[in-house]
Design a protein around this nucleic acid. Structure first.
Lengths: 146, 146
DNA sequence: TATTGTTATACTCTATAACTATA
DNA sequence: TATAGTTATAGAGTATAACAATA
């Protein structure tokens, strides 16, 4: 059990190393056509919450509008998202998922997702996979609080 | 409970987005003097397993020797690690933690670690922090299998 | 011939600064 | 004046390719 501040600092320190190393490794397993992590994050958000502007995505993801612009441009170039001017505000451009974008998001043959799932099945028990699954929403809440 | 392959694919997909977004956010919370994630990883390994060569660190961390060279150079410049030629093999240079490197590794006032710990205490219950703590070794095993 | 380490170069992701157009 | 989006530039982290020294 975690019962004092020093233990929380230990968990924080391990968290940083563990997820940092894991992400580096995950990046190396991306297939040539797989959407990158920032790209997948945008696709997932558009799928979940409907269309919104690049500035909205940047604010929500705590990324600079310029960085989001780069991600957006790559997705649009490949036809995974569509851009339509906001009829009520000439400055805004609304982004939405295309059919191809929806498919890319849920593509189970996606190399990244497949190799992660295979490694999980090979090295973790069902109970351990469930423990990881339960921890993900907690990590997401933690991210929101940072 | 996780009971079929499709569920594992779902967990894999969420894992990728969650840890990817979390790491991006963690990077933003690094203080000016804090060691970076790759740097901390090297310091932790030297602390745990004693001195070894840059090639050893690269192999173990699944990083190219050139990338490891960059990380090593930064650490040495700041006096956190020491380089001593291997007496039995003229090609190798053994790396070891200096006193300053050991302090940097365990520095609890480290801005990164502190802000993660504060966010954890503020947004997660003790039981939830314990759940995250339990999941970390599982994520580390997963990384090893990738 | 294989390994250790280095230098040079480039790619991905992200940031800051400066600009234009619209509100 | 504030906001949406763009362009230009830079930094961190990582990669591949080519090389020197040693085994």
């Amino acid at each position: 059990m975690i019962d004092d501040d020093s233990d929380v600092l230990d968990v924080a320190s391990e968290l940083r190393i563990t997820v940092g190393s894991l992400v580096r490794r995950l990046r190396q397993h991306r297939g040539p056509d797989d959407p990158s992590v920032p790209e997948t994050t945008v696709l997932a958000r558009l799928d979940r919450d409907g269309s919104c502007s690049a500035a909205d995505l940047a604010r929500h993801g705590h990324v600079s509008p310029q960085s989001m612009g780069v991600t957006i441009a790559g997705l649009q170039e490949r036809g995974l998202i569509a851009r339509t001017p906001d009829p009520t505000d000439g400055r805004r451009i609304l982004l939405s998922l295309t059919a191809a974008g929806g498919e890319a998001l849920t593509d189970r043959r996606n190399h990244s997702t497949r190799s992660i799932a295979e490694a999980m099945s090979a090295t973790l028990t069902a109970a351990e996979i469930a423990a990881v699954s339960d921890a993900l929403p907690l990590l997401d809440r933690l991210r929101g609080a940072l």
